[in-house]
Nucleic acid binder design. Structure first.
Lengths: 357, 357
DNA sequence: CTGTTAGCGCGTTCAT
DNA sequence: ATGAACGCGCTAACAG
């Protein structure tokens, strides 16, 4: 790989002149300019960002850590973050934590070692995050994405999860449902899930109903069928299920269909996130949508402000974006007669390899 | 941010000793070791990867560019790539091209400037990719992911798209279908789509059928409903639709349901990719599954081999992984009576904002 | 307009 | 076992 000296030698000038040309930092004589251009073309020279970073003491690189890339809501937020970063001339390093605080912390260590200029992260629990502590100790600009702010001066881009879940629960209740269960995928590992449960519980309480405990479904490689069975086969089964995210909700709807239950006639199901695929299925998924892409973009802007120390009206405040209730077909009126739901087909895992071609 | 000299001063030793301690490169006296450890703890010192990279002339960083992160098949492959890289002690830079060859090329420029040690990429068309040309010119180790190899000595991790599409088409034909259409999302911008069409066309031809031209559906912010109308409302409409990817297939199934058509009774639909969500909906999506996560991992391994110049039995060969036909419920037998399909509801876009909370 | 030089953080060679 | 010194690629301050 050619370096600046190779170009300078070939162009018969000093490296300073080449640098000035590359950065447009000062006027260059036409002859020198021509020789430099030729030399750059000949050598295929490309300035080394790592050399630049060393000198500049800044990398123009941001880090972002999310629980996973396979949940569309995170993929979308990363996408927005990346776009905003690129428009501002920044690069992005991405890490996934797999909902593990230890991996979170390791990713942060990595990023600090890489000298990123700032860091966005969606952690499991912002109030007890070793990763966040590490960043603070290092004094790196940072912003939370989806998580609530754990300190008054913490930057955070999120929606009001409690209010959102409360609004959604009220919507469910308005359709006549009185037995509503809350299902969570990663309850222990997600402060969002817990906030949403609080909103749900508050709405139920206000309606004079006693909120049941959340049902935690930790299904990864299998269907949620087995875990749902006790809940569904009860004589006093719920008539509506509030799932803490859309991926979970779609899985639950699949299970219900396999059980021979109709959605929403026999059981209503709602989700949270507003992923695109929820609007592509029938019935469409009733959910509370977060503007995930915009949130990623906003997080990036906030972070860049912090890095550049841009004065803002309301520094270090929690940044709430609006959510939207999507009235999909998966939420219907409470059924008049309710019976237990039991499997009619044999349970089977998702990844059923039925034939190899 | 503390640097190695700060630590050395505090520990009353030279930077060389600190370096040796940090890298475990040579034995250190117990007293010095203790002082260094204390100093590191006190200062919060973290070795600068950028300093190391400058010295080492290698960054232990890989780049990967994919069309988008919001298509689960790419998100999954990136996830696998990332995992394999981390296990090998490498970091990963990710870029998305949005199916634009110019952005692809720009991403490659960026990565080269960042001095990544190697590059994995899913390009629009490997046979006419400026990005690929740039990498070759720079002599950077690289591997194609999902794309076919454009040269004999190109590393590529893919499935045999032609054979896969052919097998799937034969499966469709075996159910009695005689009019099968091919729908592509990004036909022009995806060499995979075109290969799959070739496999499809070959299977039809072998069955004595004339393959119709592919129908290109470039729907991003709207439903495919309008674009499908001419095809579906024809008296001689197809009885099965081969979609070039799963996201497209799910969108098409949604459109059919909105039209009041039943899948698979009135129309069969199959996809390509094998995304998880395809198995969560009812009917489950019949598709040919690629091991996307494993492909990402394999691509990473191949790339690392190339970087380390590991001798391999079959260097620079196209690397085919096995695909699998997933027999989902969306493929049924050809209907006995076939009538045109026309909309029963009003068309509406996906992102119908029905209420704001 | 151009060249010389110092120094960013680090690993390493060569002494000791 | 330890330290001094160089250089990786680059930019900026200074000198001309």
């Amino acid at each position: 790989m050619a370096n600046i000296k190779d170009v300078a030698d070939l162009a018969r000038c000093s490296i300073a002149t080449v640098s000035r040309y590359v950065n447009g930092a000062a006027p260059i004589s036409v002859e020198a300019r021509a020789r430099i251009e030729a030399a750059i073309f000949q050598t295929g020279y490309r300035p080394s960002e790592i050399g630049r970073s060393l000198k500049r003491q800044a990398t123009r690189t941001l880090g972002i850590v999310v629980p996973s890339l396979t949940n569309p809501v995170f993929a979308l937020s990363v996408s927005g973050f990346q776009l905003a970063a690129r428009l501002a001339g920044y690069h992005v390093l991405i890490a996934t934590s797999d909902y593990d605080p230890a991996i979170e912390a390791a990713a942060v260590e990595t990023f600090l070692g890489q000298s990123v200029d700032g860091l966005a992260l969606t952690v499991c629990d912002s109030f007890s995050s070793p990763a966040l502590a590490t960043i603070d100790a290092a004094g790196k600009p940072n912003v939370l994405l989806f998580n609530p702010a754990d300190q008054p001066d913490r930057l955070a881009v999120t929606v009001d999860n409690i209010a959102a879940a409360r609004a959604m629960t009220e919507t469910i209740l308005s359709r006549g449902h009185r037995r509503v269960a809350f299902l969570a995928g990663q309850f222990a590992a997600s402060d969002r899930s817990r906030l949403r449960y609080r909103g749900y519980a508050a709405a139920l309480a206000q309606a004079g109903l006693k909120p049941p405990l959340p049902l935690e479904l930790d299904f990864l490689d299998t269907t949620p069928d087995a875990a749902l069975l006790p809940l569904l086969s009860d004589d006093n089964r719920p008539t509506a299920l509030f799932c803490s995210n859309d991926v979970l909700a779609l899985g639950v709807i699949g299970a219900l269909k396999r059980f021979g239950a109709r959605v929403p006639d026999d059981m209503s199901v709602v989700g949270f996130d507003g992923i695109d695929l929820g609007q592509m299925v029938e019935p469409t998924l009733c959910t509370v949508a977060q503007p995930a892409r915009a949130m990623g973009e906003r997080a990036c802007e906030q972070l860049l402000n912090a890095i550049r120390n841009t004065p803002v009206d309301d520094p270090g405040a929690e940044h709430f974006l609006d959510f939207e209730i999507h009235h999909g077909g998966s939420l219907g009126p409470a059924p008049l007669i309710v019976g237990p739901i039991r499997p009619v087909k044999q349970l089977h895992p998702y990844n059923n390899k039925q034939e190899t071609a």
